[in-house]
Computed example of a mutant assay.
Amino acid sequence: MLIVYVDDIVVTGDDITVARLKKGIFLSQRKYVLDLLYEVGKFGCKPAETPIDLNHKLSSTKGEVLPDRGIYQRLVGRLLYLCLTRLDISYAVGVVSQYIHEPRTSHMQAVNKILAYLKGCPGKGMLYSNHGHLKIEAYTDVDWAGSIDDKRSTSGYYALVGGNLISWKSKKQSVVVRSSAEAKYRAMSHEVSELLWSKTLLTEMGIQADIP
């Protein structure tokens, strides 16, 4: 890995830029986003305000099957890598990644929407600062029976240590639940497991985390 120090900024030779600022450390994949937009011919597209339509109705049967699914698969793969620093597109990328085996025109339109959103904010990233504590916190939610194809729910969560983001996930639940309460409890159980793992890891590193 090539690392170049310019004043208080660290620029890596890979796809992630690390900047040391007065407020903390900022991680960004701006160059990666711009290169992606240029390669797929979306550099001049009109920016979108959100990465996915509200109350979208994507399904495995809507639209015509794409003649070359490889293009779609490569795009989704690159967007999945971008989720390393872009929490804001995690849900949208999780949705489009469900259709990589038989992508259709409606799915490609959803991918283009994500790209248009990235056009409007290529430099977004994550800032890690000293907040004066090591509290372990987590937030979770669930989209009950949101999938048109199988009526499964999608869980989402993110966890913080010391006020800084350390992990996040958006994933469809493995079973069909019969109530929104059950869907929420399943989402919470996964997040509790993540919190326990985080606390154990910190303990092994000799760091005493505050009570959640």
Rank of each mutant, 00 (worst) to 15 (best):
S28G: 11
M205R: 05
G13Q: 03
S147K: 01
R152P: 01
D150C: 01
G206A: 08
L34Y: 08
L34N: 11
L165K: 04
K57F: 00
L87P: 14
V161C: 08
P67G: 07
N164A: 02
L196W: 03
A183S: 15
V65R: 12
T61M: 04
G70R: 10
H56N: 12
G146M: 00
Y5N: 04
K135Q: 09
L134Y: 02
K199I: 02
A92E: 13
G120D: 11
Y185K: 05
S189G: 06
Y5T: 09
N130W: 09
I89G: 06
S179Y: 14
N112T: 04
V111C: 05
L2H: 02
M205D: 02
S90W: 00
L66Q: 10
L34T: 13
M1A: 05
M126G: 01
R69F: 10
A187V: 10
V95S: 13
G146T: 03
G163M: 07
T85S: 13
D8I: 04
S147L: 03
P67R: 13
I166N: 06
R74M: 11
V10I: 15
T50D: 00
Q208I: 14
G132M: 02
G77M: 08
R104V: 06
V76A: 03
G63D: 13
E182Q: 13
E64W: 03
V18T: 09
D7C: 07
E64A: 13
Q109A: 15
L118N: 03
I71K: 07
V6F: 14
L27D: 00
M126R: 09
G41I: 12
G132S: 01
E102S: 14
W144P: 00
T203V: 12
A187E: 06
I136Q: 00
L127N: 10
